[in-house]
Simulated scan of single mutants.
Amino acid sequence: MNQIEFVNTIKPFKDKVFRLAKRLLVSTEEAEDATQEVLVKLWNKNDVLEKFGSLEAYAMTITKNYCLDQLKSKRASNLQIVHNNYAEKDAGLQQKVEDNDSWHWVERWINDLPEQQKLIIQMRDIEQYEFAEIAEILDMNETAIRVALSRARKTIREKMTNTHNYGIG
């Protein structure tokens, strides 16, 4: 596969690699570095890439592993998760402030989740991966993924209820 074919092959999922890296590493610069590292690793395996059933799943697995390694290293010890993809266009200022505040709380709660649940929330609820794809990337069965996702969502829902007094009479 030549360079142009390689770029065209990875183009559809390159942004997903970056978003997963950003979710795990927080820093845009760290996520860009991680994305570059993943692409270099893929390029170095250029001659065998066609053997993979899902190149995207393979790239996401490499991304996950690279980012978790970075999180374990000393240079990544000060990173935190930030997610700024939500904004309602027609909302008034007060609504935007409240939405922003809610997202900051959700970001904190996601950050507090165990690594596996954090990855599953990112891949399922943010990146919209199917359960089968997540199972392949994380090397887990789909039932375990559904259970972990349910627990993660329940934790976030409980924290939201306790923090914002939603639904408490």
Score class of each variant (00 low, 15 high):
Glu127Ser: 03
Gly92Ala: 03
Ile137Ser: 00
Glu158Lys: 06
Arg75Trp: 10
Glu158Ile: 05
Asn141Phe: 00
Asn65Cys: 00
Ile134Ser: 07
Lys14Cys: 11
Glu29Ile: 06
Leu25Ala: 00
Gly53Trp: 10
Asp139Trp: 05
Asp15Gln: 13
Tyr86Asn: 11
Leu93Glu: 12
Asn141Met: 00
Asp125Phe: 06
Lys64Asp: 03
Trp105Glu: 05
Glu88Asp: 12
Val82Glu: 12
Ala31Ser: 11
Leu71Ala: 04
Lys118Ala: 08
Ser73Tyr: 07
Ile62Arg: 07
Glu115Pro: 09
Asn2Asp: 14
Gln70Lys: 06
Glu98Asp: 15
Val106His: 10
Ala144Thr: 02
Leu42Asp: 04
Lys72Pro: 02
Asp33Tyr: 11
Ala34Asp: 01
Glu107Ala: 14
Ser77Tyr: 00
Tyr58Ala: 01
Ala148Glu: 05
Thr63Ile: 05
Phe131Ala: 07
Tyr58Val: 00
Arg146Ser: 13
Ser54Glu: 09
Glu56Gln: 07
Lys74Ser: 12
Cys67Glu: 03
Lys74Glu: 14
Ile168His: 07
Val26Lys: 10
Arg108Ile: 10
Arg23Leu: 09
Leu49Asp: 06
Glu50Met: 07
Met140Cys: 01
Gln95Asp: 13
Ala34Tyr: 05
Trp103Ser: 12
Ser54Thr: 06
Ala132His: 04
Val82Asn: 11
